[in-house]
Amino acid sequence: MKKTGKLMMVLALGILMNLTGCSKKIVEGPRIGVIQLMEHTSLNMIYDSFKEELEALGYKDGENCTLVFKNAQGEQSNIGSIVSSFQSEKLDVVVAIATPTAQSAAKLAETTPVIFSAVTDPIEAGLTTSLEHPDQNITGTSDEVAVEQILDLALQLQPDLKTLGMVYNVGEVNSQTNIAKAKVAAEKRGLTVMEAPVANTSEVAQAVQVLSEKCDALFSPNDNTVATAMSTVTQITRSAQIPVYVGADSMVMDGGTATIGINYVDLGKETARMVDQVLQGTDVSAIPVKVFNQNLSIYVNADALEELQLTLPDSVAADPQLVLLNDPQ
């Protein structure tokens, strides 16, 4: 009985310690909430570089600040649940990665500054009415897609390109904006466009298969749904001997043929700097949205070139902004 009594006392003490928080370290400092739309290379690069830059700025998770990271796994219902939970988290700032996430997180801006990352068109997304003077307690970084330059690159790689297939999620505002631009740019260049909008990742394979049978090449902007399915896109298009031009460097890393654009690591770092400004007391309205549309690089997948039997023109091969990438191993 004595042994049983001692055991009960130990168990009770353990439970008491857990209930009173004695076993949990209390971290002094700012609390930073982060919502990421889903898992894919672009968004992962943003979050990883965001964390690294925060550390470089002196914010160390678990030591002098707390990062509350949530991944919505591509489900809109999950985003809503995360936003609701963040309303009671007493956060100092919220970071929303990707357009759909930022749109849902906007309601938090009534009480908490919101910094978005990788939002193609913040005004069209309803996050602000001005890039220079954000007016809804929301600002951030924009990954504007160089649509016309990407199509020009496609024509350099494929001078006989006539029919361009476009695959994208019709529910993503960022994709709607870029596809509208791409259609205008394609018409100017005498290209025929075929569209295959999708609603989710499971529809991507069939859409790509259909377009690959009818088009000379495919184009997808910085579409989160397509980016998540790039391994499938690559498998189908390589088999059909069809290049796929994309809106993000990470999509080239995942098998896309080529793009012209920004480095998403830079996007993540700048997002961290904006968070630092807010935590240092700068009003959100004094932090302009930063649109990444200068000093763009040419990203080309060398494995895709070889398998598709494409040759880089001398002007592209000699460009100092050329970055050759390979398929993921």
Rank of each mutant, 00 (worst) to 15 (best):
T128I: 11
E89P: 04
L13R: 00
L308K: 11
M251C: 08
T225R: 12
V145R: 09
D254N: 13
Q76M: 15
D223E: 13
V300Y: 01
Q235V: 01
E132I: 02
V265M: 12
V291A: 03
A106L: 12
A182P: 05
L91Q: 01
Q321D: 13
A248C: 10
P159M: 07
L191N: 08
I32N: 03
N71I: 12
D266C: 04
Q158W: 00
N64K: 01
R273K: 12
T120W: 03
S84Y: 01
D314S: 11
P197W: 02
M17A: 15
V68P: 05
Y168Q: 08
Q321S: 15
Q206C: 01
G58A: 09
N295R: 14
D254L: 01
E39Q: 15
I79W: 04
N71P: 11
N301V: 13
T259L: 06
L161P: 00
K181Q: 06
A106F: 00
F219L: 00
I115E: 07
A248F: 12
S104M: 15
S130E: 07
G247R: 06
L127Q: 09
E203G: 06
N293W: 03
I32R: 04
L127F: 07
G58N: 06
D266L: 10
K162N: 08
M274F: 13
I242F: 03
T101Y: 06
A199E: 15
A105F: 11
T129V: 10
L164I: 07
Q294M: 12
G190H: 05
L43I: 14
E52P: 01
L54A: 04
V173L: 02
S130V: 04
G261A: 08
A102P: 11
L308C: 03
P113V: 11
M9R: 12
V10W: 00
S315H: 08
M8R: 13
G268E: 08
T259D: 08
D216F: 00
L13A: 15
A317W: 09
S85E: 14
Q309W: 04
G255N: 05
P100M: 05
A207W: 10
L131C: 05
E195N: 09
A240S: 15
M8F: 15
R238G: 14
D327C: 09
R238Y: 15
E306I: 11
A318I: 09
I150Q: 10
Q309S: 14
I138A: 03
S285Q: 13
Q235K: 13
I236W: 01
L67I: 15
T163G: 00
T20L: 10
E195S: 05
G165N: 00
E28P: 04
E148T: 13
L305T: 04
A182K: 10
E55Q: 12
T120P: 09
A318T: 15
N78G: 07
V193A: 00
I236R: 02
V147W: 01
A186K: 07
I242W: 01
K181T: 06
I236D: 01
